[in-house]
Design a protein around this nucleic acid. Structure first.
Lengths: 140, 140
DNA sequence: TCGAGTTACTTGACAATCTCAAATATCCGG
DNA sequence: CCGGATATTTGAGATTGTCAAGTAACTCGA
């Protein structure tokens, strides 16, 4: 039971909750700056790294494939994403960012200020320690 | 620009993104275990700390008050929350958890395993360091 | 090569979340 | 008491999400 967690761990969980809240806020704000919803921004950000089948987007975002259809529809309607046939499998549609979409994704990343100012508070050594602790916490 | 962020900071931001993803997943899972949506669980969790006016819930959750109306409606329909008049201001409705809601909120907290196992990887000293770094990162 | 079973995507129905604008009731200051 | 501000609700509409069903295309064994 969480109530049996030691006070120190509870404190850390609480802090992580706060970090999560701030991160989400910031992400939505950055998306809205480009007239995108959070979900649209997440899909576009994913595709800007690498075009992929609809199904894989759903797996990455842990939702039903039918949900992705609508989100990609809206991104496509705005000319940020396009559906390409997969030469290897005609059932598959590869979603890929348009040049415009790629630009938007870059701007989006750039306007995601989260942790830029916050991290400035920490020295390089401290950031290294933080990185290592988070890595171990997340496991391998 | 984020692209001018040093590689170390980028790495940390990336890790925090992963933490945020895992936390959200875990939160939704815990809520679903009690047949609640994430939004409903957040409102119930908030009210379990202290009853408050609808408006204040909206401020805490950074959304429109009219949105809260619906969420509290659903919690009320399930007997987890009730609306009480504010003796000091008849415009205000105080949302408060029922005994049942309070129980659910406690179970919800208990079933939120996030960071319980992950933190077990870290020694007490390391957790203290992590706490301090997060605190400084969040400011104040 | 045929056909059964699987896989990828879409569609349609429906619920929840969210915003915005408008309506209602109440408060407060002059 | 009146005019302006505040708290909540209502209704319209967009988006996100689920589930079930449908279509097209792949795969593999007989």
């Amino acid at each position: 039971m969480a109530s049996r967690m030691d006070p120190l761990s509870l404190e850390v969980v609480e802090l992580i909750g706060t970090v999560v809240g701030r991160y989400y806020e910031e992400y939505e704000r950055a998306a809205a700056e480009h007239s995108l919803t959070g979900a649209q921004a997440r899909v576009l950000g994913l595709l800007s790294l690498e075009p992929m089948p609809m199904r894989r987007i759903a797996q990455k975002l842990k939702c039903e494939p039918s949900n992705i259809t609508g989100i990609v529809d809206r991104l496509e309607a705005r000319g940020l994403v396009e559906r390409r046939p997969d030469p290897a499998d005609r059932r598959v549609k590869l979603a890929a960012p348009t040049p415009d979409g790629l630009t938007t994704a870059t701007h989006l990343r750039d306007s995601l200020n989260f942790a830029r100012e916050p991290l400035a508070e920490l020295s390089a050594d401290e950031r290294r320690v933080l990185r290592d602790l988070l890595q171990r916490m997340l496991g391998s």
